[in-house]
Amino acid sequence: MKEENGGWSPYLAGALSGVVGVLSVWVAGQYFGASTSFVRTAGMIEQLFGPERVAQMSYFVKVAPKIDWQWMFMVGIFLGAMIAALTSKSFRLQLLPDMWVARFGDRSGTRRAMTAFVGGAIAMFGARLADG
């Protein structure tokens, strides 16, 4: 099931990812998640500056700043995507997405950086609030 852009059908890739998810729950007892790892990372960075303060913060007590299954899952996503991209010639070093350039032009690097950073901060706050 090849798509014209060289990728797989999203139905096939999605269904296979569902199989991976089921196996993960079966074998490791782990459901997929991502946003908790950003909390752990924030905690690990803050520990460099003030370990006592981190140890007292209720959220870092609840979500301990350490490398766990999900943190390694995130590393795996990075590497897995890289392998898939490099082996199918679809790896592309790109600072600005095509759709962004179509709207804001190709000299909007600072604007993109600011938007992505602020958007990321807002998205993560919301994701954690909803426990997603």
């Binding site: 797989w8 890739a13 991976v20 990075f78 991209a85």
Partner: peptide
């Protein structure tokens, strides 16, 4: 698990 999932996410574009 991440390797497999990341691979499929990329393949699914």
């Amino acid at each position: 698990t991440g390797l497999l999932f990341g691979f499929l996410l990329q393949k699914g574009r």
